[in-house]
Design a protein around this nucleic acid. Structure first.
Lengths: 222, 222
DNA sequence: CCGGATCCTCGGTGATACTG
DNA sequence: CAGTATCACCGAGGATCCGG
């Protein structure tokens, strides 16, 4: 049944057999944000061949990670959602995303930013201990979509869509990464116009503390 | 340079581009235990084609995850070790291993247990909060190799080889997993002879508490 | 329009053999 | 010991087509 086994009795091997194939964890990432239809997944995974998406969903369903559900009438359409077992990949996905984010430079010419990846980026870089005592709502307008983050008592709720009573509205492009990586300060980001805000500007500094991408370790030569 | 990009400006995508290819994370797993020579890696990865191992090591080296080092004379041989950046994959690898371990049933006929995978299994299932106040050394004899675990103040040091002053010597086969998963109790494990111990038998119960594989969530039907 | 299935090409993977 | 070379194959990528 297992496509290509590693021949090892080991948790990591088993994990790679279950979600190690191409695109699988990106599908899980998008489903961690919420249930999605086939076409929604396709939109969030630019470039995925439809047959591959089909095959992955089938495999993930067979292994009990994804559940296929038919929406009640009148919608009648099909949505894919994570099972409980699949949802428990959250910590793992966040850990991978955290590690990979440190290798992000500037976006390549063919690299897009999707809603779900940005939501997961917020979740993965969120530092609860840096957020204690903070209670704030952020609305982020990035390119052609809007997401929000609500911080409360060291917890985060991030999702799609605007936040009407936001304490700070942030308008930015990919320039948000240098801010989160500490490569440019909040004042500098606003001064250069790379980031525009509406609301208390001091909340942008808090944002950069709470959502943090640590610097990539310098390569030791020799 | 990137073999096959996902076309997304996203930490998870970048991570999968860097370590998402087949065998890559298993190589990292073994190197997390310690530096290794080509042949050592080959031994720990049964079934890996040598050209694939070569290619992965080259890629991991180019991306700054692995460093190739020539040992000083008189050895003169080559070892592969993780860079600092590569070492920071530890939490991620442990998280994946933890998740995957829940899907481990009984070992398949063609599945082997390797030294490094077992050491990482201990590290991934270790629960610091269950180990507070415990100070114990375990020597585990599994199949044809021996590893040890030293627990102290909620921390774990696990590695290869015996532990001369061990408080408990455990001799077992793959039957260790049901014990860690709570599917059989320590007394039952010893009674059936699946696990043999030398030392204070009560320490086996502590072992099963400290190294824990949570049960896999039951699949909800419909 | 949604949710795929089908066909074809290409490159990575796997297995084996061989070499410095 | 530490790889490179060769080759068969299968899954990924890309496009198109089809039923509801």
């Amino acid at each position: 049944m297992v496509r290509r086994a590693y021949g090892q009795y080991c948790g990591l091997s088993r994990a790679m057999e279950l979600v190690g194939e191409r695109w699988a964890l990106l599908i899980v990432r998008d489903l961690l944000v919420g249930p999605k239809r086939f076409t929604d997944l396709r939109r969030g995974l630019p470039g995925i061949p439809t047959n591959i998406l089909s095959a992955r969903l089938r495999e993930l369903e067979e292994t009990g990670i994804v559940r296929r559900r038919v929406l009640p009438r009148p919608a009648g359409s099909i949505v894919y959602e994570l099972t409980e077992h699949g949802g428990e990949l959250e910590e793992t996905v966040l850990s991978l995303a955290r590690w990979g984010a440190r290798s992000l430079g500037d976006p390549g010419p063919a690299e897009v930013i999707t809603v779900d990846s940005m939501i997961m980026a917020l979740r993965s870089t969120f530092r609860p201990d840096a957020a204690v005592g903070l209670r704030a709502g952020y609305e982020l307008r990035l390119g052609d979509f809007v997401i929000h983050a609500r911080i409360e008592d060291g917890t985060l709720a991030a999702g799609e869509g605007p936040l009407p009573d936001a304490d700070l509205v942030v308008e930015s492009g990919p320039a948000l990464r240098p801010l989160m990586a500490g490569e440019v300060g909040p004042d500098e980001a606003m001064a250069t116009g790379a980031v525009r805000v509406t609301g208390d500007p001091a909340l942008l500094a808090r944002f950069a503390e709470v959502f943090r991408i640590p610097p990539r370790p310098r390569v030791r030569s020799a």
